[in-house]
Design a protein around this nucleic acid. Structure first.
Lengths: 118, 118
DNA sequence: CAAATATATGAGCGTATGTTCATGTATTAG
DNA sequence: CTAATACATGAACATACGCTCATATATTTG
């Protein structure tokens, strides 16, 4: 998006890499999927929901009470977690019980917690 | 907000914790720190930078060329990665060479990649 | 010295995101 | 049936974010 009147973009004189390697750079589309996923974890409310769900399966109203926020907010955030396949749910009467989907969630959660405590 | 058909949520016993690694619900302040950190990874450009840096130390202009984006954009994003202690850097003349800070970064990167391939 | 290079950064703009509020859909109680 | 409960969802508003552009700083070169 600039002003390259020459045929090649001016690169550093030193230290270049082979232009197209197989691995990196990460494909744009895959980077967007990963970014979207990390974005799901980039919210205090959703992380606190995950922390509660790491203890036990819970319904929406208990989650709302546990975090002292509205059930609407909880429901909105649970949808995000659902779409990212971070939580599962089962219906029981009027209630819907949520739980963590798999081990990856807690793995990420713990890794970041460790990183921040250095 | 609670109901009587099920037991009360087994959460939030109002006990105070040692502010280190304790159980749910996650403290608001810690949840914000973690969210901020995940937010750093929630961007396609930063993830692609990380993928490049997982290969080798690189200077800003090589990163910009590798991703075909402006050096300004790269520099802005590197600052974010720097503030989150995800990358280190060293100066060499006019150039600044960046590299990944520790193993946590790649660990998170790989975990999410696995998760998305299921 | 001045010019060129390599990077950093503040301002501004367009877009994405999280909340509240109002409403909709199921399910149960009376 | 109607009312109440539990949850989901669309709209709207305020905030946050990433980019471009212009400019600033530092280093090397002539």
């Amino acid at each position: 998006m600039a002003h390259e009147t020459e045929m090649e973009a001016p690169v550093c004189a030193e230290s270049h890499q082979p232009a197209s390697v197989e691995g990196p750079p990460l494909e744009i589309e895959e980077s967007q999927q990963m970014a979207e996923f990390f974005g799901i974890l980039a919210d205090p409310t959703r992380l606190r929901l995950i922390s509660l769900l790491s203890l036990s399966e819970s319904c929406v109203c208990d989650l709302a009470e546990g975090l002292a926020i509205s059930e609407s907010a909880v429901s909105h955030q649970l949808r995000a977690l659902r779409n990212a396949r971070l939580v599962r749910y089962r219906k029981s009467g009027r209630q819907v019980f949520y739980r963590l989907h798999d081990h990856h969630v807690l793995s990420l959660y713990e890794t970041v917690r460790e990183h921040l405590q250095e």
